[in-house]
Amino acid sequence: MPVVELTVNERAVRVDVPGQWTLIQLLRDGLGLLGTKEGCGEGSCGACTVLVDGRLTRACLALAVRADGARVTTIEGVGTDAALHPIQDAFVRHGAIQCGFCTPGLVITTKALLDEHPWPTDHDIREFLSGNFCRCAGYNLILNAVRDAAGVVTEKR
């Protein structure tokens, strides 16, 4: 069985990975990181979005063995035990979470957006978020949270 060495949430790990595994299986079944959710398994819904070397990646489509040597950030790597990340905090304040199944993917996507565009336009925000389905909250509350988070995160720089 192939062995994959990678960094997940700043921690170096070594995982035995069956050849057919996808990255989400490596994270969930291999490492017990259950925060990343699978909503469709076909790359459509965005619930499984993680960062691989800073790039937005659908963990349900990426092959696990391809993650060898990569730096992966999952929802467990956002915020600390003591405090939520400003993005997460904005989601709370704007009522942007309902069932919460799509939320980890949306938070990760927002993080990538703000890493790439510290001063995002509304068009940037909608464009970035258009790869993540949310079925409960109706997007506007999420967009408000992201606009707010952009202000907070950018100011901190």
Partner: peptide
């Protein structure tokens, strides 16, 4: 009162426990 949701903290951290979890 617009009390912050009790559910949010776990869901935002990826600690929500859904069926597959």
């Amino acid at each position: 009162a617009s009390v912050k949701r009790k559910e949010d903290d776990r869901l935002l951290r990826g600690s929500g426990r859904f069926l597959d979890d």
